[in-house]
Design a protein around this nucleic acid. Structure first.
Lengths: 196, 196
DNA sequence: CCTACCGATCGGTAGG
DNA sequence: CCTACCGATCGGTAGG
């Protein structure tokens, strides 16, 4: 009757989340079915529900994992005593590396969040808005310090975050350029776009 | 028995496509239902099928309308006798304005194309690849002519195209900045990011 | 353009 | 973790 929370039980859930992220990325949240996911995991569809509450719970976990990771990094960077440009570069690199190393999760969190249900949906939207605002504040600080040219900071944030999500196309095309080279190219273009 | 192709019949189809683009944008292709679309158009679901063949046909039309428009503009710009930077700026502005003026269609074509079925899916992928290649060639030309700094051209294309799709967040947040200001900011940041 | 309806598939539950 | 199954919803068709 009572389910026992063993170690293998916990890691089973992690496997499900991981496979779910890959599946949601490939097909989109709505088009991905729990039966497909079960197949990939290697169980019957009904068995998934011993580990998770619902399909939407999977999306919640994926989205908030990612959001919390970025929020935590931003806390860290804001506290540093360096130039504004250096802070922005650091955050950009974190985003690029996140996209390269946790591709499925980040991709899903970026493109499928609209399928969250409340209160998670509005929570995430609020969190994202706050994140972008603080990112923009970093740019505005740079403008005041004359490190960065006079541009509209929210626009710059929007450009940078979406440019990074473009790594998706790169991933898909499996280009000859390496991840590190890609990162350097992106940083060069974007940071020089800001610099005074 | 035989359906008559009247003028109002044709424009009815256009209305359906327009409303479909808005609905697909809002909910995503898979999550949007034909019953919802019918409601918006003001008919019963079955009646939609007098104007269109299937839900997927709607997506086909939306995606190829957009793709063909951009391809045509690229033809035009390639033929011009100006600097590479001027060509790229012109193309960027066309993309930005396209995003501002035909938001629903462009958004859907950008984010929902993976739900196309073959042969449309692979046709569009091929077309998009060709487009990005020719866009990259414009940048490489600029590098050879010493107008543009030495960067990886495909990476720059990827950044720019995705940065523009970021106008989505701007649209959603209904910011105080005007469309024209947004365009100027984006062009400033991105063109200066390329310039030598 | 509508009524009536179909077969398929979905997320999820009961019960063991 | 499985078998068996449910109610809901989907895209689409028949026939008028």
């Amino acid at each position: 009757m009572g389910r026992i929370k063993t170690e293998s039980n916990a890691s089973r859930k992690e496997v499900i989340i991981e496979k779910a992220a890959a599946l949601f990325k490939e097909k989109g949240f709505k088009a991905a079915s729990m039966r497909e996911l079960a197949d990939i995991v290697g169980v019957e569809a009904a068995s998934l529900y011993n580990h998770i509450k619902s399909k939407n719970e999977l999306l919640n976990i994926i989205c908030f994992d990612v959001a919390n990771r970025y929020m935590h990094k931003l806390d860290e960077i804001e506290a540093e005593k360096t130039t504004s440009i250096a802070k922005i570069e650091k955050l950009l690199r974190y985003h690029i590396e996140g996209m390269l190393n946790h591709f499925d999760e980040v991709y899903v969190s970026d493109r499928e969040w609209k399928h969250l249900d409340n209160p998670y949906l509005s929570n995430l939207q609020t969190q994202r808005r706050a994140y972008r605002k603080r990112f923009a504040a970093l740019i505005e600080e740079g403008i005041r310090r004359k490190e960065i040219k006079k541009i509209d900071a929210p626009t710059a944030v929007l450009i940078m975050l979406h440019a990074i999500s473009g790594i998706e196309s790169w991933h898909r095309s499996k280009q000859k350029i390496s991840g590190k080279e890609l990162e350097e190219n992106m940083v060069t273009i974007m940071i020089d776009g800001l610099r005074k």
